[in-house]
Computed example of a mutant assay.
Amino acid sequence: MPNPRPNRVLFLIDSLGMGGAERMLVNYLQHLDVNRYEPRVCVFGVRDGNPVAAEIERLGIPVDLISVPRIRDFINVMSLVRYLRLHQIDLVHTQLETVTVHGGIAAKIVGIPTVHTLHTFAYPNATARETRRTELVWFSLRHFHDKIIAVSAAVGDYAVSKGRVPLEKISVLYNGIDTRSFSPRNSADRVSVRTALGIPDNAALVITVAVLRREKGIQYLIETWPDILKSVPNAYYLVVGAGPYESTLKSLAAKHNITDRVIFAGPRNDVPDLLRSSDLFALPTLNDVLPTVLAEAMASGLPIVASRVGGVPEMIEPDKNGLLVSPADKIGLANACIRLLCAPNEAQRLAEGGRDIAEARFNVRNQVQKLETLYEELLKKPMPNELAQ
Rank of each mutant, 00 (worst) to 15 (best):
T259V: 13
R8N: 07
V115I: 15
V271R: 06
A122T: 08
T94H: 02
N125W: 01
E359P: 00
D14E: 12
I263H: 01
A54T: 11
N50E: 07
R361F: 06
D14C: 05
G198S: 06
Q30Y: 00
G45A: 14
R40F: 05
N50P: 11
Q389Y: 08
K370N: 01
E246F: 00
F139I: 00
L84I: 08
L290N: 12
R8Q: 09
L283T: 00
P6V: 04
P6L: 01
A128Y: 07
V110Y: 07
E317F: 15
V193I: 14
M78N: 03
T98Y: 07
A295M: 11
N287I: 13
F144H: 13
R214M: 14
P244D: 15
E346Q: 15
N50K: 08
S183G: 00
A150M: 05
D260L: 08
G241Y: 04
Y28V: 14
D270M: 10
L205D: 06
N363Y: 09
N335R: 10
Y28H: 03
I199V: 15
K330V: 06
N175D: 09
L65R: 09
K381L: 14
H93L: 09
M78A: 06
W225H: 15
I304D: 12
F74H: 08
R85I: 10
P318I: 06
S15L: 02
